[in-house]
Design a protein around this nucleic acid. Structure first.
Lengths: 257, 257
DNA sequence: TCAAAAGTGTTGGTCCTACACCCATGC
DNA sequence: GCATGGGTGTAGGACCAACACTTTTGA
């Protein structure tokens, strides 16, 4: 990995190859130990964290840019990724970042480019965190890792608001789309799935009603029984029935409350 | 109104004052005679119609840009305006428009600016059409008027898709937000309100159930009785109780189905 | 008195919510 | 054998959908 430096080469290329003023940022949700987590990147110049983001190449769609950014930070292809809002306020700067380039070797034009006002298209992704290889860009950011949503630090720019809105969108989707295929490895148990729903909704659900509704959706296949390590009865393992899951995704489902 | 010309002055100013590559487009919904209508602008150079749109000034937020564009085309302030999706595909060009400037007196730079690839932030607005003064910009467009949604012509760029998506968003909002305050003049009748819901949903609703639910929402005030011109019983007039309507807008409502 | 549209209330069924008991496991 | 968590079914209530008759008006 190259030493993290904001080089002439980097920003010069940026100004040529990318659309100015336009960014994409991704709220990458994972799920582990009953907690929602998000992937954050660390800006060495500011010693603070932000969402993984990037710019839009002149020859790619905004959706493609989001997928590319996500691939770069996670090494994952074919991720479930949804555009949810575009953030275009005038308050989207960070003064420290505007000055940090004074210490770097960038040319004026390059500095101007990165310090320009940006409008950012927000995406959220749902991923199986075990498949992710968190990868900083090595230029602006020197670290990339998971944070529990509940304990993550205040983020740069307006990224706290972007996370909040992504979560709200996810929550409102929950009653209309199946969820989980992208967040779990191949198999999972119903208690795990329930904990995912509870983490997203922020409230407990009734186990019996939850299991009944999930079974009735007809998108689950029971696989076998989990031999748990714990002092308790082992729950069944499930996997999603892909064709049915994707059909439910297309046609929508109806889970009330 | 100036003769519609794509002048050096216009595009020169555009390149300086506006963010490149970024546009806002507005799907302005009105309601008349039981039909949803949208406001369209006519491009004289192409002899075709598009959504009213515009660019984002360097010193304004994207939301402000959308409000400004809407004010210019409708003369209305304080419009109900919702961002719903950002369109960033590579297929957002119109070949004829890319060439039309060959016949104009623009400089190379100005031509390049308008022919650049654009990413567009889509907004939809709900307005009382009787208060709108449709106003073309007189530069790119020479006419601005209402079209019935059902009979409007194929639009320029990807604006047909933008309309379809705006309508789908509006439809999905219908169960969670009150609607109508912005689409009617001061007073309206329940049959009128029902026809609005039916136009948005694209299916008929049961009169009794509709009236019961609307009454139960507690956001309506009965005003008096409409002396109808028709050969029939006159319906009651209603107005929205503003504070309650706005509360319902903030807190959400729950209309199933 | 008829046609056309408006206003209103009840009932049946569905779906959601709440809830209790037994099972499997490891200590 | 007990503590822990998993699996399952039922009963009551809320809400939605379906539905019929009466009122008003102008012709």
């Amino acid at each position: 990995m190259p030493k993290p430096t904001l080089s002439i080469e980097f920003l010069g290329a940026a100004a040529e190859d990318y659309l100015p003023h336009l960014a994409v940022d991704c709220v990458v949700f994972g799920f582990h130990a009953g907690q929602l987590r998000i992937l954050l990147t660390h800006w060495h110049a500011r010693q603070r964290w932000s969402l993984p983001g990037g710019f839009v190449r002149r020859d790619e769609s905004v959706d493609s840019a989001a997928h590319r950014v996500l691939q770069l930070r996670t090494r994952l292809d074919h991720v479930y990724l949804q555009q949810y809002h575009t953030f275009g306020g005038l308050d989207r700067r960070d003064e420290e970042i505007e000055h940090m380039l004074d210490h770097e070797d960038g040319r004026q034009a390059a500095r101007a480019w990165i310090n320009d006002r940006f409008v950012s298209v927000g995406y959220y992704a749902l991923v199986d965190w075990t498949e992710v290889t968190p990868t900083p860009d090595g230029v602006l950011t020197d670290e990339c890792r998971w944070w529990d949503l509940a304990t993550c630090p205040p983020l740069l720019f307006d990224h706290d608001a972007m996370v909040a809105r992504a979560l709200a969108t996810l929550r409102s989707q929950l009653g209309h789309s199946p969820i989980g295929l992208n967040l779990f490895s191949e198999t999972f148990t119903l208690p795990e799935l329930q904990r995912l729903y509870e983490a997203i909704l922020g409230r407990p659900l009734d186990r019996r009603n939850f299991q009944k509704r999930m079974r009735e959706l007809g998108i689950l296949e029971r696989v076998g029984e989990l031999r748990g390590a714990g002092v308790r009865r082992a729950p069944y393992l499930y996997r999603f029935d892909r064709p049915r899951y994707e059909q439910a995704l297309r046609e929508g489902i109806l889970l009330r409350r």
